[in-house]
Amino acid sequence: MIVAERKPIEEIKRMLEGYPSVLVVGCDSCVAECAAGGHRETQLLAAALQLAFGKEGKSPVITEACIDRQCVDDFIESIASLVPEHAAILSLGCGAGVQALARVYSDKPVFPALDTLFIGETEMRGIWQENCLGCGQCKLGYFGAVCPVTRCSKRLMNGPCGGSKDGRCEVNPDIRCGWQMIIDRLEALGELARLSEYIPPVDWSTSHSGGPRRVVREDQLP
């Protein structure tokens, strides 16, 4: 899923300054799972904004709505009736959600309430871990299903650097060394010999390095 965090209220407030009415739109998918932009967070943010503007003697109309997926037109269109009566939209979706709203409601200013961080997993309640960079050529099969592109701070493909200590990364002891994880896992699986193979330079053309990516599937087109 996409993991995001809410921006500071001050930054959000600055973006909305001057608009008499704002439609605050949550997204009940990924960003609900990471407790940043779901139903509950949308309600809380709308109330917090009302309060913050109220302290300055301002009272913009703030309406909240939450849709299942901000990145799919069918769901986006479910709020179509609310949009015309608001001067601006504040999205609690990920970056994709914000941009999809702006594409569909092309005459409305749309602002992000979240900082979109990464593709990751919920390790446990309150902890989310990045584990995929979407490089476009999944190599997890070589590495015991631990991604060196994401989990190694230097994206090393041929083994750990000299800065791995006690299973921790030289960048920050809070970061687990991805290569220690790869080695531990392959060792446990009895497949450590896989790592003696030389991995040639990565083809980054399938990653964002090749420009914004797009998938077109004839069999899925209407």
Partner: peptide, 17 residues
């Protein structure tokens, strides 16, 4: 550096390269 057990294997990889 850690993992200590992998250090000589990594050296071998550098030589092979």
């Amino acid at each position: 550096a850690d993992p200590v057990g992998f250090r000589v294997a990594r050296l071998a990889k550098k030589i092979e390269a």
